[in-house]
Every structure is written in C-alpha cells, then in structure tokens.
Design a protein around this nucleic acid. Structure first.
Length: 111
DNA sequence: CCTGGGGCAGCCG
DNA sequence: ACGGCTGCCCCAG
C-alpha cells in the first residue's frame, strides 16, 4: 500500500477521455470547452465536458486551467478564477482585461 | 449588451 | 431503475 492516499478517481469513461485530452495541451497553449468537446467526438456535450473538468483530480497532470471559453473569457475554475488567471499569465498568456485573453486565437492548441 | 433555449453526462432523492 | 436538476458552456437573436 502506498503511503500516499490514492484519491481513487471514480471517473467514468467519458470523464477520463476529457481529462486525457486536456493533458495534451502544452504549456503556453489553451483550448476551449467547445474544441475539447469536439476533440473527444462529442461536439454537443460541451457542458458535460465543463462539468467533467470540475472533477479533475490532479492539477499537475491535467492542466484544466488551459481550457477557456470560446469568446476568450476565462470561464470558471474550481479553485477560483483568480488562480486560473495567475497560472495562465505565468505560462505567458497575455490579457487585455482582467478576465479576457488578448488574441486567444494566437494560443489555441489544435488537437 | 442581455436573454433564452439547446444540449448532455452525473448526481441525488 | 427513473425523472429532474445542475454545471469551469455556446450562440443566435
């Protein structure tokens, strides 16, 4: 038995697919909830995808802060939007206003 | 700019 | 099993 408690991720197949896809997003890049939904073959399950991110068990392996809204706004974050913005800035993402990414298209990661 | 309805996987009673 | 919310949303109007 590991000393480290295994946060037994009771994740469904769908949720795993979502998290797996997010892991591919490199530092300094972002994607949107919509693209992410498409990427896993469920273009209409956008909200379900967003919800799945809320269950993200490991913020290191699954950088869900790199998933933002289609309009370039930040979107939500389980640990607070402020934290999300902080992380994105740290990775080189520029903001035009607090809460609004400058030229989101520039950073978009294509699956 | 704001609004409503679409859409769907999970969760809870 | 089952129906009704809900959620890190989206876009047409």
């Amino acid at each position: 038995m590991s000393k480290f408690r295994n946060k037994s991720n009771n994740l469904t197949t769908f949720e795993k697919q979502v998290l797996q896809a997010v892991r591919k997003i490199p530092r300094g890049k972002i994607t949107t909830y919509r693209f992410l939904a498409k990427a896993i073959g469920r273009p209409k399950a956008v909200r379900a995808v967003a919800k799945a991110l809320g269950k993200n068990p490991c913020l290191i392996k699954v950088p869900c802060h790199r998933v933002v809204r289609s309009d370039g706004q930040i979107g939500g974050y389980k640990l607070g939007v402020g934290k999300k913005i902080f992380l994105l800035k740290k990775e080189g993402i520029k903001f035009r206003r607090v809460n609004q990414i400058d030229k989101p298209n520039k950073y978009l990661f294509k699956f």
